[in-house]
């Protein structure tokens, strides 16, 4: 046993703070001794290997603490209420379309989920799809959601007519934001990716929501062919009277129907927990990618959340250690 402690004192002592050293173990019983010694000397066991342990010199700062509070996993919850859509955009990250399997999350299920989410400290809700307003009773879900949390619903705003419009008008304005997709300032680019005639109807939907007194945020998804679109969009946003915090411009992710764009993975994305009828996902941008699935069901919610936080911590610590080991990379 003393031989192990001598190795620890020598190797860890010679390791620069923030770096990692691999210390050989003589047997499985050594692990508990190493853990005790590390705890007492302010160092941390990073990884347990078959015959060795990797020890981080000095305490590891919690990577979650370095994130702004609103970006920490568990602050914001995403929910896919359904996957079918009146459109079939060529970059859709979840391959939605009129013929996509709906995979509906019922109002009752949403109610149970939100209760657990609020109890676990979730402070903000984003509802998305598919097109959420494909569900005729979407207003019930939004009424429930806004009674519990500030809620944003992502929509293409093309279905605000007839019964749906009447139900929309009756919704509370407090705690609700409609985030509406618009990809360009003129029909060309928008319609190329989202379907002919979709630009005019989306613009009508934005004006309708603004006229009804809803808080509106307009979101653009730009691909490689975006050109000067961003500048033109900013001008249109200003014409619509949108403030800076009512505008979102983001890049296409290489997920679902998109065959080009940014590549995402569990190690490259800060998680934003996302629940669908099929389970829990690392991030809403990849809610049909098996590699991004976290759990088959959201309950117990606090445990699922903890597992996501823990995995993120591991990725970050590993990433930080690699970054400090290979500073030339």
């Amino acid at each position: 046993m003393s031989a192990l402690i001598l190795r620890l004192v020598e190797q860890v002592g010679a390791t620069p703070a923030g770096s990692v050293t691999e210390v050989a173990l003589d047997g499985p019983d050594d692990l508990a001794s190493v853990a005790r010694w590390c705890e007492a000397t302010g160092n941390e066991v990073l990884t347990v290997l078959p015959d060795a342990v990797e020890i981080h010199r000095g305490r590891i700062a919690d990577p979650l603490a370095s994130l702004p509070p609103e970006r920490r996993p568990g602050h914001r919850l995403w929910v896919y209420t359904n996957f079918h859509c009146n459109l079939a955009c060529d970059y859709c990250c979840v391959e939605s379309s009129p013929t996509a399997a709906p995979r509906v999350l019922s109002t009752a299920e949403l109610s149970r989920l939100l209760e657990a989410a609020v109890a676990s400290g979730v402070e903000e809700l984003y509802i998305t799809g598919g097109e959420p307003f494909m569900l005729i009773d979407m207003d019930e879900r939004l009424r429930l959601a806004t009674s519990l949390l500030p809620t944003t619903v992502l929509t293409n705003a093309m279905l605000f007519r007839g019964e749906r419009l009447r139900r929309l008008e009756a919704l509370p304005r407090d705690n609700l934001t409609l985030q509406i997709s618009l990809d360009s300032a003129t029909p060309g680019l928008h319609d190329r990716h989202r379907g002919s005639g979709s630009f005019e109807r989306a613009l009508d939907g934005i004006r309708c929501a603004l006229d009804l007194g809803f808080r509106v945020r307009v979101a653009a998804t730009l691909g490689e062919d975006a050109g000067d679109t961003e500048t033109e969009l900013e001008r249109l946003f200003s014409d619509l009277g949108l403030d800076d915090d009512q505008r979102v411009v983001r890049r296409v992710a290489r997920q679902g129907a998109a065959n080009s764009g940014l590549t995402v993975s569990r190690t490259s994305l800060v998680p934003e927990v996302c629940v669908t009828a099929e389970g829990v996902w690392w991030h809403p941008v990849a809610a049909i990618d098996p590699a991004m699935k976290v759990a088959d069901h959201w309950a117990p919610f606090d445990e699922v959340l903890d597992s996501v936080r823990e995995e993120y911590r591991r990725h970050r610590i590993r990433g930080d250690v690699l970054a400090s080991t290979f500073p030339c990379a």
Partner: peptide, 11 residues
């Protein structure tokens, strides 16, 4: 440094 985790570790 050796006994920080307890003297029994260097028994």
């Amino acid at each position: 440094a050796m006994t920080a985790g307890g003297e029994d570790l260097v028994a």
